[in-house]
Design a protein around this nucleic acid. Structure first.
Lengths: 153, 153
DNA sequence: TTTATAAAGGAGTATATACACATAATTATG
DNA sequence: CATAATTATGTGTATATACTCCTTTATAAA
């Protein structure tokens, strides 16, 4: 009778404030801006920084292999690499298999990486100090689990 | 003497496999693709789905207020809304303050939302069933904490 | 060995994202 | 009230993302 005792007029399907996709994207926007702002003096963003690090570890590597490793669409990676090649951060050369293209970090890319590292660390430390090492590791594990379930077909 | 006992030759600054930004973006790519694939029959992606839900709950709302609420750059939101307006999903009209623009979900947008809801639910359930409700809630809390620390200036 | 299939990649298109700068309208200040 | 500061938004530019379709090359099948 009185609407005081009634629950809010929000239908069931509006409970998507719990949508994992939405909340993940929302957090990613905020966190990306933090890293990008910290990395700005180095002239790269967290996307390129991450690519440089991965290339330093696993490169030289084929485009498709790299794309799979970092869970990125092949065409997205290609276009990101194209920009980095223009900026002199990476080299992309034909592989032995003439279909493939092989990616390597350049000396210039390594130099930028070294310059960016302490900047990246500031961002990372800010988050680590706020959340604590344990919670951060749990979060990493959860993100990994999210990838697994999302890719299970 | 022997390199068997040595740790791998990866310098300290390459430990960024722990980079929160990188891992968050990586997981977001995977999860977004899951939701987008599930939502495809409804003709919208998880970005638009989320916007429709939020508009259904909090609309009508001013662009800047909405942007702040969903932690999205104002100009990004404007351009997303522009597409949705063309598709007839939302209305954007001038507010009383003649500087402002007020956003509302349309009837057509509500219809698409209803059609998309069960599709969204399939994606959400897949993740929920895989991770478990508890872990999922912990993850949501962590994402919220990430936003807080990223925006603390 | 010819042909069919698969794999790697590029190009076209479209959405998502945000920074820097400019404009219009409102509010605060003198 | 006139001017200065603030606020809300739009535009230009650039990166990030991925789907679809197409070409080239390699491998498997006949």
């Amino acid at each position: 009778m009185s609407d005081v005792t009634e629950s809010p007029k929000i239908p069931d399907f509006l409970c998507c404030v719990d949508c994992v996709g939405f909340n993940l994207r929302k957090a990613t926007r905020a966190v990306t801006q933090l890293y990008d702002e910290m990395l700005r003096p180095a002239g790269i963003r967290v996307t390129q920084y991450s690519l440089l690090v991965v290339l330093k570890i696993v490169g030289p590597v084929l485009v498709t292999d790299l794309a799979e490793k970092i869970v990125m669409d092949r065409t997205t990676l290609s276009r990101n690499l194209e920009l980095m090649e223009k900026q002199g951060l990476v080299n992309v050369v034909p592989g032995e298999d003439r279909r493939t293209r092989c990616v390597t970090i350049t000396e210039s890319g390594s130099a930028v990486l070294l310059e960016a590292y302490p900047l990246w660390q500031h961002a990372q430390d800010k988050i680590r100090e706020s959340m604590g090492e344990e919670r951060l590791q749990a979060l990493m594990a959860d993100l990994s689990a999210l990838i697994d379930v999302s890719q299970a077909r």
